[in-house]
Amino acid sequence: MSEPLVFTFKVDGGDFTSAGQASVQVKKNLNQIGFPPEVIRRVSIAMYEGEINMVIHADGGVATIKVDENCIEIVLADKGPGIADVEKAMQEGFSTAPDEVRGLGFGAGMGLPNMKRYTDEMTVDSTVGVGTTITMKVNY
C-alpha cells in the first residue's frame, strides 16, 4: 500500500479576508488528483466552514488533509477557547459569533451543522481553555 498523501496548512487567525485560502488550495489539489466533483465539493465545503470557524473563534489553527485509500480525512486543530457545549453548538442556528462576523456573512449557526452534513464521520474533541480538534471523514 502506498503512503497516504498529506497536505498541511497553517490557518491565520484574525484575518477574515484571507480565510478560506487553504480550502481553495485543497479543492485545487483534489481536482488535480482527479477526484469526482461531488467528493471534492463535500471536502472543500466542510473544510471551508471549519477554516472560517478557526479564524472567527480560535485565532487560527492548523488544517491537515490526508488522502487515504478509501477516504479523505480532514483534521482541524486549534488552541482557541474550546466549545463549552458541543451538542448545543451542533444545532442549526446556534451561534456565539460576534455581531460583526454576521455582517461578513457568517455566524448564522450553520458552520458545524454544515460540516456534519457534508461528511460521513465527524468527531469534535474540545476542552474549554485548551482548544478544539475536529476530525471529519469523507468516504469515496
Binding site: F16, S18, V24, K27, Y48, L104, G105
Partner: peptide, 13 residues
Amino acid sequence: LVNSQVIRTAAMM
C-alpha cells in the same frame, strides 16, 4: 454582501 468570502463560497459550491 461584498467580500472575498462571497467568491470563495461560490467557488466551493
